[in-house]
Simulated assay, not measured.
Amino acid sequence: MSNDYRSIIKEGLWDQNVVFSQLLAMCPTMAVTTSGTNGLGMGLATTAVLVVSNVLVSMIRHTVSSQVRIPVFVVLIATLVTVVDMAMNAWLHDLYKVLGLFIALIVVNCAILGRAEAFAVKNGVAASAVDGLAMGLGFTGALTVVGLLREFLGAGTLFAQASNLLGPSFAFLEMKLPGYGGALLMILPPGGFALLGFLLAGKRAMERRAEARASARDSGLATPSAA
């Protein structure tokens, strides 16, 4: 089972990453990643919905008929998103104001319903929770990386206003590059799409190199036995 969990985590963080592999949730990815702080906040909110929805779907998978499964899942996800929306409004109000409508739009994030259909409805509660957490952290990592790069290149800062948006305990994350005003293009949508393209190309190149090394290693192991 530990090997299965390792595979689930690897799938969520890398192989089936919501942004870098499946190219889902492009709307929030481009809209909220003008800073690392925004990307981190949006990613964590989505992760909370993913984990809880996967767990609940796994718990009710034997009691909901296939005819009404999708509507039930949508209502369940919408309820969870409403709870997250209200919680952020109450306890992270500044971040709530920055993310705005995109919190409510978590309900139409294809990754959430997709994981409910592809994984949670077929697996147990523990595995579904791990899958939701891995997928959510992969999504959070992708948003944070894109946000940090766009923020750094566009404004010369890292995690700007983290103490205001996430709380005083996050003040240590804030950094500013002295003497650099930034390139506005990176904050705008064209810069975001260009950066995402470079990141996707980099991920593909890393995967090809890993495949080539694995193939060479397998060939090296097979040669002596063939001889």
Rank of each mutant, 00 (worst) to 15 (best):
K176E: 15
F159C: 02
L137R: 15
V146K: 01
R208A: 13
F198A: 04
G191L: 03
A134G: 09
G182W: 00
A142R: 06
S128T: 12
S163G: 04
L199N: 06
G147N: 10
S169N: 08
A212Y: 06
A214R: 14
R208L: 11
G138L: 13
E174S: 14
E151R: 00
L188Y: 03
N164T: 11
M206R: 12
A210C: 10
L200H: 10
G197P: 11
G197A: 08
A210Q: 07
Y180D: 07
A162D: 00
N164W: 12
A129Q: 10
L137N: 15
A134K: 01
A162V: 07
A214E: 10
P190F: 06
D131V: 15
Q161N: 11
G136M: 03
A142E: 09
R209F: 08
L166G: 06
S169L: 13
S128Q: 12
Y180W: 10
G181L: 07
L173T: 06
L188I: 08
D131E: 13
L137A: 07
L195Y: 07
G167A: 04
T140R: 02
A162F: 02
L149A: 14
A160I: 07
Y180N: 07
L165K: 02
K203F: 10
F172E: 12
F139L: 13
R208F: 12
L195R: 02
G156D: 00
L149C: 09
G179K: 09
G202W: 08
S169R: 09
L158A: 15
L200A: 05
T140Q: 05
S128K: 06
A162T: 02
G202M: 06
A183M: 05
P190L: 03
L177A: 14
G179I: 11
G167P: 14
A210T: 15
F152V: 04
A212I: 13
L149Y: 01
F152D: 00
V146I: 05
N164R: 09
R208E: 13
G156S: 06
G197W: 03
F172I: 15
L200R: 08
G192K: 01
L148I: 12
E211W: 10
P178I: 05
F170S: 07
A127Y: 14
L158K: 06
N164S: 11
N164D: 10
A155R: 04
Q161M: 08
L188S: 02
L153H: 03
D131I: 04
M175L: 14
A214P: 11
E207G: 10
M175K: 15
S169V: 13
G197N: 05
A205E: 11
A210P: 09
L133D: 09
S169Y: 12
V146H: 04
G147T: 12
A155I: 07
A201H: 11
L177T: 15
A212E: 15
M175Y: 12
G147L: 01
P189H: 04
L177Y: 10
F139Y: 12
L133A: 10
L148P: 00
L200T: 15
G147H: 00
M206T: 05
K203M: 13
A142D: 13
